[in-house]
Design a protein around this nucleic acid. Structure first.
Lengths: 182, 182
DNA sequence: ACCACCATGTAACAAGTTACATGATTAA
DNA sequence: TTAATCATGTAACTTGTTACATGGTGGT
């Protein structure tokens, strides 16, 4: 049982879903490809944490809808109380910034403009999902007992972060421009 | 040549260093164990991006000090101009937050208190390194041509982020407390 | 016709972690 | 004497990515 396995278990605990759907739900929070998810689900089912029913669809391919078992729910609650692993960030920009003095002015500027664009895209995506869950929960997303409370706080975190990162990039660009004017 | 390889190349370009030293320098920016770094350095040397000299030490074990070659410098500059990979974050807290409605009040609160502690530790570390490079560069860390400019902007980014993350955790804890009082 | 989306899976590979291995110096 | 720091390496394993494989539906 690794972190991703518990993540899938947590999503399935909220809403029974297919592997494909879990992959999409997971995207904003933990990037994982379907090739990693499908074997994990099979393993979780094999070990009794989940069960699935094959759902026939006429217009689309059939799907396996996974739902949590009692054993799965117990494991999930134990996991939530266990100490949380420290976050790991892998950002190529950070490594490039480390040797920024070897880049020419144009390259340096492009680096942070590129990041601003990326942050704006992410921000839009977060705001879009936020609107969706606000409509679904009809104005009570700040109720901790509501299933979408987790999404609500995570999305507002994402928005905050992206806004701050944009500000940081703009600050760096100012420092870079200053040098260029001299 | 993967991202970590370029990261090592970038550090070596600034200051010739041993594998052990590179591992320590890299820690704040990209977590990598020595078991990943040593074979990579050997590969980089084998492919002509770096060279090393064995430095004898009396009080400590001998070390291999790596320095960049012309081929390495060329590769480094090309990398800096290439499009940057999107950042990847893997944070167990995010997955736990997704199914926060399955946790009891005590467990939920502990989760965010734990994160606040972690952020405070990180913040202290960043501030400490910041002070060191401020002393080294004697009040000109905001000069983009200075080799420590990269560290300066990255550390201030780290500080900003940790401060914002603490604020976010405190906001979440307020929402959790509110519910508890009702 | 071609592309995107839905849906599931495997195989090969790359990246990263943990454990094994050695050995000197120095501080508590 | 016990642990931490310096210093380098390999082996086994886990995690994550890319590519291979299949096939129907719906839009441009």
């Amino acid at each position: 049982m690794n972190t991703l396995a518990y993540g899938l278990l947590g999503l399935v605990a909220r809403t029974p879903s297919s592997g494909y759907d879990l992959m999409l739900q997971l995207q904003p929070y933990w990037q994982a490809k379907h090739s990693q998810i499908y074997p994990l689900l099979a393993k979780l089912e094999h070990n009794g944490y989940m069960q699935f029913t094959r759902v026939h669809q006429t217009d689309r391919p059939d799907k396996k809808v996974y739902s949590i078992t009692e054993k799965g729910k117990t494991a999930l609650k134990l996991w939530l109380a266990e100490p949380t692993a420290e976050p790991v960030a892998r950002d190529e920009l950070v490594l490039k910034a480390c040797c920024l003095s070897f880049a020419d002015a144009r390259t340096s500027r492009a680096l942070f403009h590129e990041r601003i664009d990326h942050c704006r895209e992410q921000l839009q995506m977060y705001q879009h999902i936020m609107q969706e869950i606000e409509q679904q929960s009809e104005g009570s997303p700040n109720d901790p007992s509501h299933p979408s409370f987790g999404d609500y706080i995570l999305l507002s975190w994402g928005c905050r972060r992206m806004q701050e990162d944009i500000k940081w990039c703009e600050w760096v660009l100012e420092l870079l421009e200053k040098k260029n004017q001299e």
